[in-house]
Design a protein around this nucleic acid. Sequence first.
DNA 1: CCCATTTACCTTGACAATCAAATTATCATC
DNA 2: GATGATAATTTGATTGTCAAGGTAAATGGG
Lengths: 138, 138
Amino acid sequence: MKNPEYLAHLIVEFYEKLSSWEHAVVKGKGLTLPQMHALELLGVHGPLRMKELADRMGVTTGTLTALADRLESKSLIRRAPNKEDRRSYLVELTDKGRERFLEHDKLHVQITREITAGLSPEETELFSAALSKMNGAF
Amino acid sequence: MKNPEYLAHLIVEFYEKLSSWEHAVVKGKGLTLPQMHALELLGVHGPLRMKELADRMGVTTGTLTALADRLESKSLIRRAPNKEDRRSYLVELTDKGRERFLEHDKLHVQITREITAGLSPEETELFSAALSKMNGAF
DNA sequence: CCCATTTACCTTGACAATCAAATTATCATC
DNA sequence: GATGATAATTTGATTGTCAAGGTAAATGGG
């Protein structure tokens, strides 16, 4: 019953459901998935250089340039000069961008509550511990 | 320590890592992520109507029409007539498409093995059970 | 200090993904 | 059979994406 094929299937299903949930949530907000993803990474990690953000998103800097332009034109991010290295910017959230990030992050907590509602505290604890280990194994 | 915020954070991190892994794996194969996603859904669920597949992918049928055209031109899928309803097709994998799907699916099993390598059998079992419950709760 | 190399970002050109809205063909119901 | 709903396509516009090429700044070895 607990062969890797079965577990792989569960993980794929979980991934698909998260993906579809995220898609639906972002859609109603005037933002695209990549745009929200960028806000999220900036919210979690603080200001990043374009290259760092592009790497974390898994896109080229060319792609990110265009994406950042759109977010900047919506006043959600800002390119601040980087004193350490004048070739680069530090991309950071504006107040409006941070607001959007926090709002979205709240939804993550909420969906987490919902999908773990059927788990006992011990189960939740063990799930959490296992997930933590797995995240470290990538 | 085990508040929902923390768990939400772990889940987001897990999702991001899966996403980034998937992206990297698909890239080297001449397929895009949505294209592989379509092959995967067809592989798992069998032949689907365009509308069904679009719904599962979370895109409009207009988007899927174009996507299916590209997959069809690569001989990975086929539009078969639907005797039940002549308005629709049944989209199905070709042999070549099934091959691609199976090959990709094997990678899922493999990455699953890798990221669960640090878990004890009991932990894996519990993780699996928790995930199964959570999938049902979406 | 100089020059070659690397790095960071931007630009361009081409293609893919995406949606909303309009269209066509078929189905379903009354 | 007429009317309304559904399945797929088409169209037009925007966004996402990459590879390749360009510019400016940093880096490192002579």
